[in-house]
Design a protein around this nucleic acid. Structure first.
Lengths: 329, 329
DNA sequence: TTGTATGCGTTATCAG
DNA sequence: CTGATAACGCATACAA
């Protein structure tokens, strides 16, 4: 078994409190005689003492641990986000535990009740549930929470992208390319980001078909397979995975439709399929969510405010060519 | 504050022990009178009781929590792995906490000491360190551990891919395509997988240049930029991110070199660049690592054995064409 | 400067 | 069938 404060106390003929104070290493430890301090330190080193963080957290009601619950860790978007959030938190003395709801409401519910019981200090959440009430039923009122990517009405501590700005970026580019008739490839409508993006596109273009399903490549593949024959000007996808599926399924074609999507997709440059993407600012997502969380962890609590980020447009050469062709014609 | 056993005891005029027994919900709770059982249950529900898992773990020395420490969560390979491992563990009553060392030895060391202190029951590790000794210096001897992807001499509980089988798959395909002179794009050599793959390729082909760096797209981009002028027959990359970088950097070319890599890359089908990949069996990775961990969690401990998985080859149409051209010529 | 005693919320032992 | 009581490892108010 791992040695405890008691073991060290016995070994150095002192008491647990003395040992605790020494190892606390704060101003309190200064008030211990230099000699016993050295003795205790040495014994701790020798025995290979490691504090039991469970016990410490139980006592102090602080775990210095933040939970990040994402909706789909297999999506590189959230992988990058997680990686960056962890880095940032670590710089502030917190460690991160990362959980994955996999877009499953039941699993989310499970984690949302489990995590607070494990004594986390705060929660960063990419939610599936959609109301403050549903959230607060599972999570204690006093737990600091930051919502990411999918705003929930009534929760101020939230960081997300301006969905209209992002959609407009894409739609304008498509308009310039002469797009009129589109196939809409959409993630679950009950997710606000997918819904908002879809609604925007429906206002701007003639939607000749809609494919709605899990925000995974498979849904995109299906959509392309099913609707390619209708010769749409573009497939417009509400996230990266959907776009990936569409692109994969289209393959090589003499005059492929444009594929539009949101979030980063790797290697778009080498493609003969014209691609236009709205890139959300992942580093800013990470930085901002931490910035919204930290003040809430302080004793005073903290007034935090919603943050809305802007996205940028990235297109590949094939898309550029398509636009040029049209303008010379 | 969240209600405790004590609160329920007071509310129902019983004692903590009774309440604990009732809520344990095992055979022990059967031995409590039906009436008080009902009373206690009702009170618990009313008060919204949630057990304090810190306290429970402190007492029972069991957390029903497994830690997965991966080397780069931003790589979709590990994202998928994490997602699958979590699913599997959940089915066995364990929850997962996922951490990311980001290929940073210092950070790995930090987590390796931190996690056991948080009272995990087991650890699944994609290691950066390379010896059993280094690992056991940080992690208690008695903690069940499974190593994934990068074997460590002397640790039996390990699941990884047969690196020679995998490399041969790729090399044979390249040979058929007539590849002789290659540029080797390699992750850090101190990582066994990168090293093994690189060494294999060096035996089979004439390496006209080697680019070694972090296993990230950027390294691949650099390599392509720097060595494309040498007209190699192929760029051979030791993982997916490196391959992605190379492909991105090559872009569209009249007669591009072949790009070979390991692990899944999305959308290779639509590319004019010939691509050949060895796909590791991620679901089997996940399933096997859990299978190696679970017996170690049982009281008896468990004899577990190394598992070596086989990979499969996937090529895109551009590669197929290249091969066909050559055979008709 | 240091030691004693108490409690964090649970589970487990031991009486009754 | 149930209620005290101890213990898990640590931090801290209170004594000395």
């Amino acid at each position: 078994m791992s040695p405890t404060l008691n073991d060290i106390a016995r070994a150095t003929k002192t008491s647990v409190s003395t040992v605790s104070r020494v190892l606390a290493d704060g101003p309190i430890s200064q008030r211990i005689s230099t000699q016993t301090r050295a003795r205790v330190r040495e014994a701790a080193r020798q025995l290979g003492y490691k504090p039991n963080l469970l016990a410490r957290s139980l006592r102090t009601r602080k775990s210095h641990t933040i939970a990040l619950l994402v909706s789909d860790i297999s999506n590189p978007f959230f992988g990058r986000l997680a990686s960056l959030i962890e880095q940032s938190l670590r710089g502030h003395g917190y460690s991160l535990i990362l959980c994955n709801s996999g877009e499953d409401p039941e699993l989310e519910k499970e984690y949302l009740t489990l995590l607070p019981q494990k004594g986390i200090d705060g929660l960063i959440l990419v939610p599936i549930l959609r109301t403050k009430k549903a959230l607060r039923e599972l999570v204690p009122e006093e737990l600091p929470v930051v919502i990411v990517d999918r705003p929930i009405p009534g929760i101020r501590a939230c960081v997300w992208s301006d969905q209209d700005q992002l959609s407009q970026l894409v739609a304008d580019a498509l308009a310039v390319a002469g797009v009129k008739r589109i196939v809409l490839v959409c993630g679950p409508r009950h997710v606000v980001t997918h819904r908002r993006r879809a609604e925007y596109m429906e206002k701007r273009f003639e939607v000749i078909a809609t494919e709605e399903g899990p925000a995974q490549p498979e849904t995109g593949r299906l959509a392309a397979l099913r609707w390619l024959g209708e010769n749409p000007d573009a497939f417009v996808c509400t996230n990266n995975f959907l776009g990936q599926g569409v692109v994969e399924s289209i393959g090589e074609l003499p005059r492929p439709p444009i594929v539009a999507l949101v979030d980063e997709l790797s290697m778009i440059e080498g493609f003969s399929t014209p691609i236009v993407t709205a890139i959300q600012d992942v580093p800013m997502f990470a930085e901002t969510s931490v910035k919204l969380l930290l003040p809430q962890l302080m004793p005073g609590g903290g007034k935090v405010d919603e943050a809305m980020l802007t996205s940028r447009l990235v297109v590949n050469k094939a898309f550029q060519n398509r636009v040029n062709q049209r303008q010379t014609a």
